[in-house]
């Protein structure tokens, strides 16, 4: 079942004293329920911009974007927010937990925008979710008392708590050491598989990209399909400096 359909999507921004900047051009993409998609690309290639479009946070400048078979252009602003709340879960590189709120309160936050059972039983649902990411014993902990890996696990619980059909992770392991990153990704993969959601991950780490079943690459706003992210595929062409220097060097051969 197709969840996302993009055809000829471009995104340009109007700059003040310069010609318009094209961030994405001619992007075609279909994502179905249960897909595992990884997107790599050097810094500034438009990965986050693309993810914002997929998560209904932004609109394409031209081209068609359909969510669940409906053109996104037809959504009202509030409708778009509600669809996003119900069907999309975000995971950020910087975790973006709400400071001063406990782990439990953070995981409950998306449920505050739900209705009915999800809203009224939010404490129970959020507790169960934290249990599943192995933090059932840290419900009352504040984010600044948690390690990076624990914070990202809270963030994962938060993104999954409403049972989204699409999980968007923007460099989810970027702020974690390799081992913790691998653990967190394994967890994310496991819970995503359990819920049958599509998972789109932006990453610099080939090991993490390797977890996906479909591998995409962004170059200056152009999206291309690549093979499995073995070293040669990533190293061929213009390999980003940061990839070669840091991430790849750390990957065992």
């Amino acid at each position: 079942m197709t969840l996302l359909h993009l055809a000829g999507v471009t995104r340009t921004v109007q700059l003040i004293d310069a010609p318009p900047l094209t961030i994405l051009s001619g992007v075609d993409l279909d994502v179905a329920v249960g897909d595992r998609v990884s997107i790599v690309g050097r810094s500034g290639s438009g990965k986050s911009t693309l993810l914002n479009l997929l998560g209904l946070l932004d609109n394409p400048t031209t081209g068609d974007l359909e969510f669940d078979g409906r053109p996104v252009k037809s959504f009202s602003s509030a409708e778009r927010d509600r669809v996003r709340g119900r069907d999309v879960g975000f995971i950020f590189q910087q975790f973006n937990l709400l400071q001063g709120r406990t782990a439990l309160e953070n995981v409950m936050t998306p449920l505050l925008y739900a209705q009915g059972k999800q809203f009224w039983q939010r404490a129970r649902i959020a507790t169960e979710m934290l249990d599943r990411v192995g933090l059932g014993h840290r419900l009352g902990a504040m984010p600044d008392k948690l390690s990076g890996g624990e914070q990202q696990r809270v963030a994962i619980a938060r993104s999954l708590v409403r049972g989204p059909r699409l999980i968007l992770a923007d460099e989810p392991t970027g702020a974690l050491d390799l081992e913790t990153g691998a653990d967190v990704m394994a967890l994310l993969d496991e819970v995503a598989t359990g819920s049958g959601a599509a998972l789109i991950t932006i990453t610099h780490d080939p090991a993490i990209a390797a977890l996906a079943t479909r591998h995409l690459r962004l170059d200056h706003g152009v999206l291309t399909v690549v093979g499995a992210p073995d070293d040669s595929a990533l190293l061929g062409g213009d390999v980003p400096d940061d990839l070669r220097d840091d991430d790849l060097a750390a990957v065992p051969a």
């Binding site: 946070l57 602003s77 509030a78 996003r84 709340g85 879960g89 975000f90 973006n96 709400l98 925008y113």
Partner: peptide, 19 residues
């Protein structure tokens, strides 16, 4: 300043502008 980020996070989890 701190809250702008927070509001962004809330919006990305489904809070409408009215909310």
């Amino acid at each position: 300043k701190q809250r702008i980020r927070e509001i962004g996070v809330r919006r990305s989890f489904g809070a409408t502008a009215g909310r």
